[in-house]
Amino acid sequence: MTESRKIVVISAGLSQPSSTRLLADRLAQATVKRLADDGVAAEVQVIELRDLAQDITNNLLTGFAAPKLAAAIEQLTASDGAIFVTPIFTTSYSGLFKSFIDVLDPDALSGLPVLLGATGGTERHSLALEYAMRPLFSYLHAVVAPTTVYAASSDWGSTGDASTGGLPERIDRAAGELAALVREHDRSTRVRDPFALPTGFSPVGGFGAQ
């Protein structure tokens, strides 16, 4: 293998162990395998948002990221692809997940290949990936893989049906799509300082001061 890529996994599971982390790991493993089949090595870094919850809250209140949160953001912005997985609460992504997105620079994910996944108790919430998560990442100008993966409690160990396939099949299809996007990703065209001050910022006069 002569090529290598960096994949960052963002898991917003609250319990330990969690089905959210389990799905995140399955998606990461499948993506690594797909890349390896094409001669591309992948380094995977997993970020558990539950471990950063206090730092994320403090960042929202103060505008400054603690070292551990800053390191996680830098890992994400310097990656070649990312996997985001959240539990679904009240028909949408979790508050912790959205809070992490809110502390990112608006351009931090621009051009980044992304695979979206979610977990929930019932199949009824599966469309949250399309009406809540996909629009969010489209707004952030990420390159979202066509297939999203939702895992309800009943999906674990199920083979699915003829139209949707089982969870392993959906994971493999989504991983193949992300791997294809990651292979073509040129990190040099999008890596930026996630903590750079906006153009025109003056510590004395504020934004746009001359």
Rank of each mutant, 00 (worst) to 15 (best):
K6N: 13
V8M: 08
Q16S: 09
S18L: 00
S18F: 08
S19L: 08
T20K: 06
L22V: 09
L22K: 13
L22H: 12
L23E: 00
R26D: 05
A30S: 14
L35P: 14
L35N: 00
D37R: 13
D37W: 11
D38S: 11
G39D: 00
A41T: 06
A42Q: 07
A42K: 11
A42E: 01
V44Y: 14
D51M: 10
A53L: 05
Q54W: 12
I56K: 02
L60N: 04
L69Y: 07
L69M: 05
L69F: 07
A70Y: 08
A72W: 14
A72L: 04
E74N: 12
L76D: 00
L76S: 06
G81D: 03
A82D: 06
F84T: 02
V85C: 11
T91E: 13
Y93T: 03
S94A: 07
F100L: 12
D102P: 15
D102C: 08
S110Q: 05
L112V: 00
P113H: 02
V114A: 09
L115H: 10
G120A: 00
G121K: 05
G121Y: 08
T122M: 10
E123P: 15
S126A: 07
L127G: 05
L129R: 12
L129C: 06
E130A: 10
L140M: 09
H141P: 06
A145M: 08
A145D: 03
A145Y: 07
P146K: 04
A151C: 07
A151E: 04
S153Y: 14
D155K: 08
D155E: 08
G157T: 01
G157D: 04
G160N: 04
G160F: 02
D161I: 00
S163G: 06
S163L: 06
T164F: 12
G165C: 04
G166A: 02
R170F: 02
I171V: 09
D172H: 10
A174N: 06
L178Y: 06
A179K: 07
A180W: 12
H185V: 01
R187L: 09
S188M: 13
T189A: 09
T189W: 06
R190S: 01
R190Y: 00
R192D: 10
A196E: 10
A196S: 07
G200E: 11
S202W: 12
V204H: 15
